[in-house]
């Protein structure tokens, strides 16, 4: 099977997961018996994504974060990783139902629309570059799942506020729990992004290359998420606002990420 074949197969599994949970969601049935099936489907998709990343890493001799395509697949992989970790820990009903479509969509954009061509002037290799890129992308995974949890929060809150809740109210977890997990994921992502940026500073000095657009993107993301974390810490960020920011910021993060990485890459020596 080709490298991309593994990803298409993973997409198929994520698609199946969407169909399974969507059907259960519409019927208003709890996901009790479905949860393990959905979890295994997502786990199998994750294993296929991991196989792709392993094969690609082996082929290029470094962490597979050298093209927009690889990076996007890495983000989807990180989001599934956080789903696999968070799902069983908190026993969140229908988390898979909300995660699978996002992962499916990110994977589809990567497979159908993103360049997999190595850059004309490849980055010099340093473990610091790989560390910086990998931890930054893992942070994106945490932000992705925070966005997913934020969507679940808004759905649940909307029903509770309406005073005429739909039967799906019973299917989703309590809003307080969703808010707590959302906050923890944003905080975790922010801490990882901070380490990733510190790694980036070191790696730029080590390899002697500095990329203005990427740096501006990372700093903007750091400031935006830092603002959310700070506002929450200061007691100025209510749960609903937190959920909205989680969704909006991840959407903007992903779009700006693609824009930055699809622009013609120019690098220049570090100042």
């Amino acid at each position: 099977m080709t490298e991309r074949g593994y990803l298409w197969l993973a997409e198929l599994l994520f698609g199946m997961s969407c169909l399974l949970t969507w059907q259960r969601w519409r019927s208003g049935q709890p996901d009790g018996r479905l949860r393990p099936i959905n979890y295994i489907t997502m786990l199998a998709g994750f294993a296929l994504q991991t196989t792709f990343l392993y094969l690609r890493g082996k082929a290029i001799g470094r962490c597979p974060l050298t093209t927009p395509f690889e990076m996007t697949i890495f983000i989807a992989w990180a989001a599934v990783l956080f789903y696999l970790l968070i799902g069983p820990s908190y026993r969140l009903s229908f988390l898979g139902a909300f995660t699978a479509p996002i992962v499916l969509a990110i994977g589809a954009v990567a497979l159908l629309g993103l360049s997999d061509m190595p850059r004309a002037t490849p980055l010099k290799y340093s473990p610091w570059v790989d560390f910086h890129a990998a931890i930054g992308i893992l942070a994106c995974g945490a932000f992705a799942l925070a966005g997913v949890i934020g969507a679940m929060y808004l759905r649940q809150e909307d029903q509770l506020k309406s005073r005429r809740p739909h039967r799906t109210l019973a299917l989703l977890p309590a809003v307080e729990q969703l808010d707590i997990i959302n906050h923890r994921l944003v905080l975790l992502g922010f801490v990882m992004l901070t380490f990733g940026m510190l790694g980036g500073v070191v790696s730029q000095h080590v390899v002697g290359q500095w990329m203005a657009a990427k740096t501006a993107w990372a700093v903007t993301a750091w400031v935006a998420y830092g603002g959310v974390v700070g506002a929450r810490w200061a007691g100025r960020m209510h749960a609903r606002r937190m959920a909205r920011y989680s969704i909006a910021l991840f959407g903007l993060l992903l779009l700006s990420f693609w824009l930055v990485y699809l622009l013609p890459v120019s690098s220049r020596p570090a100042p």
Binding site: Q156, L160, P165, L169, A170, L172, A174, V175, E176, Q177, I180
Partner: peptide
Amino acid sequence: VDLAEKIFR
């Protein structure tokens, strides 16, 4: 009570 359980953890 059902509603409370969907608001609080």
